Simulated assay, not measured.
Amino acid sequence: MSFVSDVREVARSRELLVNLVRRELRSKYKGTALGWAWSLINPLATTAIFTVVFSTVMRVEPPVGVDGLHSYPLFLLCGLLSWNFLTAAVQGGQSVLLDNGNLIKKTYFPRRLLVISHVAAAFVSYLVEMGVLVAVFLVFGVNVLPWTPLVLGLMVLLAVFALGLALLLSVVNVYFRDVAHFVALFMQIWFYATPIIYPISLVEGVQDGQSWAADLPLTTLYQLNPMVGFVESVRDMLYGGQLPPAGPVLYALAFTLVSLWVGNAVFARLQGRLAEEL
């Protein structure tokens, strides 16, 4: 099947997709006393920990933002919320087929709907968290409302990027169960290779001669990470009050399209024997 045919198949099953998303949202905090409040408590608790460790103890200084803004928690949240969404979408998405093995074996439906619904449910939480962050900026006297449409566009782009990775990993994880453990290790490395808890200026300040590649400076290698474009672009608009450079955004867009195409192609190739493998 072509990519267009796969999209049409998902579109024809949109009612089922909506129901799957609702199921994901209902089950996310089912049985907890605080419910959806955990979607705010978790990033705030993480922010408090990182602020103590990196801002107070290690004295990592955030750059000065729009209107003289100088706040490590706000600087951190601009990147942390996007990273938390990616982690939830990818690491949760990679196990969604295994978690729904009984459903897959009982009836036929487009299997990718399970992955899409998981990413969509994580995106709803992402929207809520970013909405709260926008409100916090307004409380601090920083008018970020003009940037919200562009930030929303980047959030959707990040969701598509995460969907491509989740499609790829979810189906591969059915055949090779060690994948989840490798991904968990890789995500830890990826986190520290992305300017979330520190400003990118710390990387740009490293001399090119310290690169471990002979022909590429360290900053160039660093910016091959697509999450750099996503995190820095959101931070530029919300924290810096400026339009991000076009280069990182276009690179993130290209990487997103490749991620979706590869993830969907691998999923289509391997989904035929899912019921037997599960």
Rank of each mutant, 00 (worst) to 15 (best):
A48G: 13
L25G: 04
W212F: 14
L44M: 14
H70C: 00
T148A: 14
L169A: 12
T87Q: 15
T46K: 11
I189R: 00
G241W: 02
G209P: 03
S2I: 05
L157D: 05
S211P: 07
R273V: 01
W38H: 11
N84Q: 15
E276N: 11
R23I: 01
P217K: 05
R235S: 04
L154Y: 08
I197H: 04
F186I: 15
V156C: 11
G79N: 02
A120I: 13
L16Y: 10
Q188C: 00
V142Q: 13
P63S: 10
L17R: 10
G229C: 06
A265M: 09
A180H: 07
W212K: 11
V139Q: 03
V136M: 06
L74S: 06
A120N: 02
R235F: 02
L114F: 10
F186K: 02
Y72H: 07
A166T: 11
L202M: 14
L16K: 10
L97P: 04
V228L: 02
V249G: 02
I197P: 01
R22T: 06
A180N: 10
F54P: 01
L221M: 12
I200N: 09
L113I: 12
P63W: 07
F161M: 09
Q223C: 01
V134F: 14
V179I: 15
V172E: 03
F161R: 04
P245I: 02
A48P: 02
G141Y: 06
L154A: 03
M1Q: 11
A180K: 15
R26V: 07
L44A: 15
V234E: 11
P245Q: 08
R8E: 13
S201M: 00
V249Y: 03
L98I: 09
Q210G: 02
T148D: 01
A246Q: 07
I196C: 06
D236S: 14
A48H: 01
L133T: 09
E24R: 14
L253F: 13
W261L: 15
G31C: 11
V18D: 01
L169Y: 12
H181V: 10
F255E: 02
L86Y: 12
D208C: 01
S71A: 07
A122H: 02
Q242C: 01
F182V: 15
I104Y: 08
L221W: 00
L274F: 13
S71I: 04
N173G: 11
G164W: 08
G153Q: 05
G93N: 08
T220M: 11
V258E: 03
Q210T: 08
L150K: 04
N102K: 13
G131Y: 12
K28L: 13
P110H: 07
V171M: 08
G209V: 10
L86V: 08
